[in-house]
Amino acid sequence: MTVALFLEQMLNGLQLGVMLFLMAAGLTLIFGVMGLINLAHGSLFMVGGFVCAAVAAWSGSFWLGLIASLAAAAALGALVEIVVIRRLYDRDHLDQVLATFALVLMFSEGVRFVFGSFPLYLDPPAFLSGPVTLPGGLPYPAYRLAIIIAGLAVAAGLGLLISRTRLGMQIRAGESDREMIAALGVDIRFLYTVVFALGAALAGFAGALVGAIQSVQIGMGEPVLILAFVVIVIGGIGSIRGALIAALLVGVVDTMGRLLLPMLLSNVMHASNAAGVGSALASMLIYLLMAAVLVFKPKGLFPANA
């Protein structure tokens, strides 16, 4: 294996991690602040991808699509919070899982109803569509580099929002003691709607960004949702910083595992078998990582209420 391949795979891992962070940030905020398990988060990711593809096809501009996907996911998130989610805060987690799973099914069929059954077309903007040459002569897709930069910028912005603004203060207070901040005169219902819409917007943003290099199709959110849950468990539920570090960790471990395991195994067995076994082991790797983290730190790496 060459140094160039190793570096390229590290960048790929970073890019996957950044994308997972956008999903996990919303999920962990919603769980941390409201104690709600939201399975429909993957559907908001899908809606982001579909809205971006539809608006980009209609207007010819990817950027307009990106803005529209943010707005649509946030609006849909707020609507869902007001109509459905609000009634679930006092219920136990099983009820929440059932209700939000029902939302997943409704969103999937709703998207089919609006956009049809066939995958939609969405391409990155022209100036990001090819490869760029990184220092050292390594060609790398410009769009993936843009995702890394955009994701890290969102992470920084979210960090500032939580630690420096009034809204962030209320969110942190809501995580520690929701009755107390209600008693202090903060409109907790409004705060919940805002947090939910923020998480939804991040998921929609991720869906739109990823839609340009993947298939915009029904059910595209569910595989990402599972990884995002792994991320927030590893990172510590409710912690943005934990979500960022865990997302990058999962991204890099997953990518490097897929590369290295078949290579290592081919030293001890036939190449064809090594490919099959290595691939199977690689797909387990992040779950093994999660199990290992839980053994040593049962509340995750950076528990929010430590």
């Binding site: 060459t2 160039a4 391949l5 290099i213 897929r258």
Partner: peptide, 12 residues
Amino acid sequence: TDYAAEIAEIRA
């Protein structure tokens, strides 16, 4: 859904 790792291997 993501083939970055495989594409890097194809290139190499």
